[in-house]
């Protein structure tokens, strides 16, 4: 996946654990491999519950990542 551009967005408690609201990554063909890399790099991630959105859609289970994509790490919603 040469030249792939993944923008990782983190919100709420997840952003705190990462110490960042936005990261860049490349070379991941699916969400499972990206999550393994994130967990290795940010061990504090396992302390928080979060779901994943790819290109602004919630995904359940492993999902393929395109050349340009936006992956968001979303803690439980608490609007309203």
């Amino acid at each position: 996946m040469d030249g792939q551009q993944i923008t990782i967005l983190a919100f709420g408690k997840v952003a705190e654990k990462l110490g960042s609201e936005q990261l860049k990554a490349s070379g991941f063909e699916d969400t499972d491999s990206l999550l393994r890399w994130l967990h290795d790099r940010y061990p504090a991630l396992k302390e928080v519950d979060f779901s994943l959105a790819v290109d602004r859609k919630l995904v359940a289970g492993n999902t393929g990542l395109g050349m340009m994509c936006e992956v968001a790490l979303l803690p439980p919603f608490s609007g309203g």
Partner: peptide, 26 residues
């Protein structure tokens, strides 16, 4: 209202003081 509270990616940080807060849970 139920759907908005359950499905919108929005987060509330409850502020108690200058350096005190917790993340709201619905």
């Amino acid at each position: 209202v139920e759907r908005l509270k359950g499905e919108l990616p929005v987060w509330g940080r409850e502020i108690m003081g200058p350096n005190q807060y917790t993340w709201k849970e619905n």
